[in-house]
């Protein structure tokens, strides 16, 4: 992958825009097409593009697997937590009208929070799915490399990061 200068340059230009667009989709979802599910997928796709071009190891330094796993749970907890808060404020579970004194503003706040929860979970589950598949491939390549000596060159050629560990 080191020789793909065009891909690297274009990706460096595109990835910030993709992440910014994901945030726009996330927070503009109330007014136009969009919302947590779409934003999460786009956000995850941005990181997956980064991993495809700069390698899995670099991406794991940018956004560590334990952080990814933690955040994918945090989104669900945020969603369920909004429901619990509305219980404590005297409403039904996931009834956002009681979150603020004005019911309509409460609905706005609740929808924004739970969409954020959805977005976080979807984005980080997508990244962790990719980590799982790509990480498994590296292990397979390394296993082949250790069993068959003549395959080492081929394996490390296919993935420059397999050699480094």
């Amino acid at each position: 992958m080191e020789h793909h200068i065009v891909l690297r340059v274009v990706a460096k230009l595109l990835i910030p825009i993709i992440l910014l667009f994901a945030l726009y989709v996330q927070f503009h979802g109330d007014y136009g097409p969009g919302g947590g599910f779409q934003a999460g997928v786009i956000f995850g796709a941005g990181f997956i593009l980064y991993a495809l071009i700069f390698g899995l190891q670099t991406t794991k330094q940018v956004i560590s697997p334990s952080f990814v796993h933690g955040m994918s749970g945090a989104g669900v907890l945020l969603y369920a937590g909004v429901g619990v808060i509305s219980l404590f404020r005297g409403g039904n579970y996931l009834d956002y009208s009681v979150l603020l004194s004005d019911p309509v503003h409460g609905q706005h706040l609740g929808i924004m929070l739970i969409e954020l929860g959805v977005g976080i979970t979807v984005a980080f589950v997508m990244v962790s799915l990719f980590y799982a598949f790509a990480g498994y491939r590296q292990i397979e390549l390394r296993k082949q490399g250790s069993t068959k000596q003549n395959d080492v060159a081929q394996a490390s050629d296919a993935d420059p990061n397999g050699k480094r560990q």
Partner: peptide, 13 residues
């Protein structure tokens, strides 16, 4: 369907 698509990709994975 919006939710089903994203659930679909998770189950495909």
């Amino acid at each position: 369907i919006l939710t089903a698509i994203v659930v679909g990709v998770a189950t495909t994975a």
